[in-house]
Amino acid sequence: MRCGVVVFPGSNCDHDVYHVLKHVLDQEVRFLWHDEPRLHGSELVVLPGGWSYGDYLRGGALAALSPVMGAVREHAERGGLVLGICNGFQVLTEAKLLPGALRPNRGQRFECRDVYLRVERADTPFTREYAAGQVLRMPIAHGEGNYEHFPYELDRLERDRLVALRYVAPDGALADEWNVNGSARAIAGLANAGGNVFGLMPHPERCAEEVLGNSDGLALFAGAVRGAAQLAGAGR
């Protein structure tokens, strides 16, 4: 499986995602440079975390207009798999590949801690290895992860079942104190209607090896790799 990890100036989780795909899952991975509008045959494209172009305007705003994003958009429109993590999720919303926007955390501070996520949809390529209702533990590390959209759009997201992950208490129940950044409807991760574009604020790549004390995130990459392989097999 050919995987591509986009490198914007300021990306800082690019090596971490590369490590999981290459060394934990044994896939073919290459870095995709921000100012080249080419994916070099990547079947799974990952937009990693970081501060793309310094994020001095809004998280992801400048990256959304970069040359590589043109190619990512075409890939997504053809049904190809695109995963945005943290800043990558911000880039996807700024590029309108996913709905909504990510605003500064409710507490106005950067938050680095473990959160609990409930899998709302297990029928996307990214969540297929999980069970619906399963509770995952995953680290977050962001200052702007507070998901926001117009109320009627939020209703539509729910109706169309685009919400894939929600912040919950360890027992899986919705609880305001565990919605640590104040996201609308406790949204932590979203898919598009086709399920092939997926964004989340937590960092699955930081919990993909037992040596780090948590491997809840590995199945997300494993599912994506398998999903991309199936798409490729289907002769898309």
Binding site: L57, R58, A61, L62, L65, T93, E94, G100, A101, R103, E148, H149, F150
Partner: peptide, 9 residues
Amino acid sequence: EKLLANTVV
């Protein structure tokens, strides 16, 4: 519309 503001928020 294109860059300076994100009209969602």
